[in-house]
Design a protein around this nucleic acid. Structure first.
Lengths: 341, 341
DNA sequence: CGAATTTCTTTACGGGTGTAAATTTTCGGT
DNA sequence: ACCGAAAATTTACACCCGTAAAGAAATTCG
């Protein structure tokens, strides 16, 4: 195939019979050159397989084709799935997504932002850690890089895209109240604004329906949500201190742990006869349909959230200017009824 | 903090009172300059926060500090966890890991390798798709970039690090035979060499113990293992075509699906009285301890596999030469006894 | 204290590409 | 065939850092 090794654009320009600046223009945008020129270049490409050196490219461009993506915890399938969707969209648009995970730690989040900035990305899509974020660092980053925040709403960046907890939580509270005992709310120490919003939405929804809200906060921090749900769940069940036989968990991963706890303690989970505990979650995690029993939950609109985030970012990048207001786009959740509640 | 914006190393050298080449040397290796010089530079770093431009750095170095990491499916928590451990080790060693996922598709794997190569990485750690990999492409990549293969053993790269399926499978087969009815083996269409090795190890182990092996192959490909386990599990249970009340699954994700299927069909899973089905897995996936009942499985030694892979790669990079043989390092699994079998 | 050694400074070039300006070629339409 | 517009070419400089060579300064050691 490769008759000759092509070292750089100079050499490639020579074998393709086109001048280097024009070749450069072609790689920047194939449609920006004449059809006949494009054909020549692409013919040469077939024969000589050459790709511009990424480092040299990005050294001069004020606007690279890099998009930074930062999530708090990539091992969480929710974020893994979000990242998967984001990556796909970026690649299709000719951008080069580069993914960082904070692994739940502030220091790593700071590190990632710092590294990311040296890459001079065209823009960034970040889901901050939230409460454990170093606000100053995130804010300064977002001032220097066009940034869209998703999932966890810190007041930084040019826009926020996420779930409408004010809609989704009442949706499931309403369902649970209609079909059985009003739920208590099982949460962890809140790691991000979503957690607080969900709790507040729960309290509000219960009050509107004329019920007493009961919030149970599990001890223990970190991102091992299932473990917390399991440990605290076992304790609560053993102590018989659950104020209701219906538990709405702040998120699905917590619910997964609670279901495991219920199993261990011999409590049958579900809404049928003979069931002792109804458990519901929030997010529709990828594995929520495989719990035993399958988890009733509210879905987050993964596709819309990622699509819209990317879209807004691309508008920012292409528009070149930052909007004066900071739009917050919230997508509604949908009730996902399964066996657990 | 930043009294003045530092654009490049030139400016930073000026404010730190050290010449640019020495500063460059410092960033390459802080120990290569005199203590007093290092102190001056680090004092300036505290005040002016500057980081060398990654693109410019890598443009000239024959050996970049980039390590490419490629996994077949990042949304799989097994790989997410592996990546987490690898990233950590690379960063600690002063390297810059950059993660790619093939998302289960050959085209994306090829793409990732191609992009990766333009980054001129010092080395790569890859877990290939396996059967759906484009062998030619992977091989050619590994000839140009020092590559360590992990998890899925394709005959490419300088070394392989993975699990000793020949030890782990007999371990659990032995346990299952000792404590109840000998297991049948539940697998999917094999996506990589591990799947085949595990099946063969199962057959061998059963024969050594004097039992008839029974392999059940689920229909359906792709990486939605749980879904396959659920769908096929329901079918098998409904048709009463499981040849044994003990099922050893080729991996935990399949087992998760099968547990869900058993639940839906009203079969109690576990090894106690009143249980109709024993289910075991392989890998000790991060969420296997949270199934209901918790999954009995064989652990893969995540930490050792990633540590050793990284170690071998660093030796390769530092040694500069490639070993004549191609070492294959296999780590033993450990039995993880829980409730499901 | 002086010599040998280490380390730093100065100077200069190179890497592969972006990009601007001036000029020439090509193309489409009359 | 001609003319204006569009596109390509030539030339030149920029980006930021690695790195080499030669000389100057600082450190170490006898």
């Amino acid at each position: 195939m490769a008759l000759q090794k092509i070292k750089n654009m100079e050499e490639f320009a020579e074998v393709s019979g086109i001048s280097r600046p024009t070749v450069s223009k072609y790689f920047h945008d194939p449609d920006s050159v004449r059809k006949s020129t494009r054909a020549k270049i692409e013919a040469a490409l077939e024969t000589y397989d050459y790709r511009p050196n990424i480092f040299a490219i990005n050294q001069n461009r004020k606007l690279t084709k890099t998009i930074g993506v930062l999530v708090p915890y990539l091992s969480d399938p929710f974020f893994a799935e979000m990242v998967r969707l984001i990556e796909r969209r970026c690649i299709d648009a000719g951008f080069w997504p580069i993914v960082f995970s904070a692994h739940g730690q502030q220091s790593l989040e700071n590190n990632a932002l710092s590294t990311l900035e040296t890459l001079r990305p065209a823009g960034a899509l970040i889901a901050p850690l939230g409460r454990s974020s170093d606000f100053e660092v995130v804010q300064q980053f977002s001032e220097r890089v066009p940034t869209v925040v998703f999932d966890s709403n810190m007041s930084v960046g040019e826009a926020f895209v996420g779930s409408n907890n004010g809609q989704s939580i009442p949706l499931i509270v309403d369902y649970l109240c209609r079909t059985g005992e009003p739920p208590c709310f099982f949460e962890m120490e809140p790691v991000n604004p979503n957690a607080n919003k969900r709790r507040d939405a729960y309290v509000g929804a219960m009050e509107r329906l004329g019920f007493d809200p009961h919030v149970i906060q599990a001890q223990g921090g970190g991102w091992a949500f299932e473990q917390i749900g399991l440990t605290e769940g076992k304790r609560l069940i053993a102590e018989r201190s659950l104020p209701s036989d219906t538990v709405l968990c702040s998120n699905d991963r917590l619910a997964v742990g609670l279901i495991a706890a219920a199993y261990e303690k011999g409590l049958r989970v579900g809404h049928g006869p003979g069931c002792a505990l109804r458990i519901a979650g929030h997010d529709d995690h990828p594995w929520s349909q495989f719990t035993a029993p399958p988890l009733t939950t509210v879905s987050q609109d993964y596709k819309s959230i990622t699509d819209r985030s990317v879209e807004i970012l691309f508008d920012l990048i292409e528009g070149g200017q930052r909007p004066s207001d900071r739009p917050e786009v919230l997508f509604d959740g949908k009730l996902v009824l399964r066996e657990s509640a």
